[in-house]
């Protein structure tokens, strides 16, 4: 608990265990029990019961409870209770070395490092999820191994999404980054707004799905993925502006041409287009084909990365409005007519 945590004051009684009562042997109950052959310290029940081995500690003394006033999951520890937060992790590794467990310690450190790297990349660009498409034999992908098509999933980084631990769920490899993320979340937690959360929630769900699918085959295409990742990372910024579907993109091109002729309507159209691109216009299942396999013949991707997209991040609410606004502004500044309108310059056209 940091200093900023809410104060929860409660008065503790002078004798919260009521030892005055417990230690008093003059009581009626104590008297009766001893008169029936009970000795302090013994448990009740039949003498030499056959099932005595099954007795629990609760037969000796009442069940102890502790007040849980947070939503911490089972097995999770508060920030201050984790070893690495007060430098004990390093200490542990020294002890490990002294105990001659060099190899394990090294492995652990490598693991930690990897977690950190991943966390960095995640923070910077967001994560990419992959699904195995079988093994590469010679020059073609052998589909016999696994019928499933490879899906390249692009998940955009979302600034406010701090809760990513679920994403890592069930994926052995990614598990490692989980701990790191928890830490991060702790820092960012108070900033979370309800709206943002809800968006991220959905996104996480989608991501998790991909992670889930990938789980079984994750290890197999580790290498492959690494290559791709470096590629995709460089590509990410390009797709940042707008996750357009192919159809929408074609429309955009056409419109761009038109705009040269009909400058006046540009602003309006851009707005409309933005509105259109928001909801996923195509059926997600049809889009889950990957570009590596075969790009759909009908559509011609305009950028290097075609973003498949049932799982694409679609800006909604505030983000959508903002993006539309930016786009409009861009359009307007490129368009002399609009600029004139904005600056209210009257010129004969």
């Amino acid at each position: 608990m940091g200093l900023a945590a809410p104060k929860n004051r409660s008065k503790i009684s002078n004798d919260p265990q009521n030892t005055t009562w417990a230690n008093n042997t003059e009581r009626f109950g104590h008297k009766i029990l001893t008169s029936q052959g009970w000795t302090p310290g013994a448990s009740l029940g039949a003498t030499d019961a056959a099932h005595k081995a099954h007795y629990t500690a609760a037969s000796q003394s009442h069940i102890r409870v502790f007040l849980k006033d947070d939503n911490l999951g089972l097995g999770a520890k508060r920030g201050s209770e984790r070893a690495e937060n007060f430098g004990l992790a390093g200490f542990a590794s020294i002890l490990g070395r002294l105990n001659g467990k060099e190899e394990e310690v090294k492995k652990e450190e490598e693991r930690q490092e990897k977690i950190q790297q991943r966390a960095y990349v995640y923070k910077k660009f967001g994560m990419m999820n992959f699904v195995s498409g079988g093994y590469l034999v010679g020059d073609k992908i052998e589909k016999g191994v696994k019928k499933e098509v490879e899906v390249k999933v692009e998940v955009k980084f979302e600034p406010a999404s701090s809760d990513n631990e679920v994403t890592e769920k069930k994926s052995k490899k990614r598990k490692r980054s989980g701990e790191e993320d928890v830490k991060k979340e702790d820092e960012e937690e108070p900033k979370l707004k309800r709206k943002k959360k809800s968006v991220s929630l959905r996104e996480e769900a989608a991501k998790e799905d991909a992670a889930l699918e990938a789980t079984s085959k994750w290890k197999k295409d580790k290498k492959e993925k690494k290559d791709k990742k470096s590629k995709s990372v460089s590509e990410t910024p390009a797709t940042d502006s707008e996750p357009l579907t192919d159809k929408a993109r074609r429309k955009a091109e056409k419109r761009a041409r038109k705009e040269e002729k009909k400058l006046k309507k540009a602003l309006k159209k851009a707005a409309k287009e933005a509105a259109k691109s928001n909801p996923t216009t195509e059926d997600p299942s049809s889009e889950s084909e990957s570009e590596e396999e075969s790009t759909p013949a009908s559509s011609v991707p305009t950028t290097g990365t075609s973003t498949p997209s049932g799982l694409t991040y679609n800006p909604r609410g505030m983000h959508a409005v903002r993006q539309r606004y930016i786009r409009q502004k861009k359009m307007a500044s490129m368009d002399p007519q609009a600029l004139k309108e904005i600056f209210m310059i009257k010129t004969p056209s």
Partner: peptide, 25 residues
């Protein structure tokens, strides 16, 4: 049976997310 790889920070939220994920996928 599936376990989480790491403990959850907020079990209620994790539960909600899991439900939605199941629903979606």
């Amino acid at each position: 049976i599936f376990y989480t790889p790491a403990p959850e920070r907020d079990y209620v939220e994790a539960a909600l997310r899991t439900v939605l994920q199941i629903h979606a996928t």
